[in-house]
């Protein structure tokens, strides 16, 4: 939920530079502490995706902060929860 809101915010143009590390921190906070494996299923993609593609995230956020690039508000393949 929190992770989903952050990634949506990044895609909508409101990313902050601390967001990738925040995502990793949240994902670490979920792993190993849940009732069933759904938590890990949610956290593993985030952990691997953000850590392996961190440059891409930071580049995207920097572009947003510099005001370049259109924000993808018209992409409704995902919904805000």
């Amino acid at each position: 939920m929190w992770i989903s809101r952050i990634t949506k915010r990044i895609c909508a143009g409101g990313g902050r530079l601390e967001d990738p590390d925040l995502l990793l921190s949240i994902a670490d906070g979920i792993c190993g502490r849940t009732v069933c494996a759904h938590g890990e299923g949610m956290a593993w993609p985030v952990q691997s995706n953000v850590s392996k593609f961190k440059d891409e995230y930071l580049a995207k956020i920097r572009r947003q902060l510099a005001g370049e690039g259109a924000s993808r508000l018209d992409n409704n393949s995902y919904r805000l929860i």
Partner: peptide, 14 residues
């Protein structure tokens, strides 16, 4: 775009 892909996935899990 990995961020978009991630957002798509996370919306599902949430």
């Amino acid at each position: 775009d990995m961020a978009e892909a991630m957002a798509n996935l996370n919306a599902f899990y949430a």
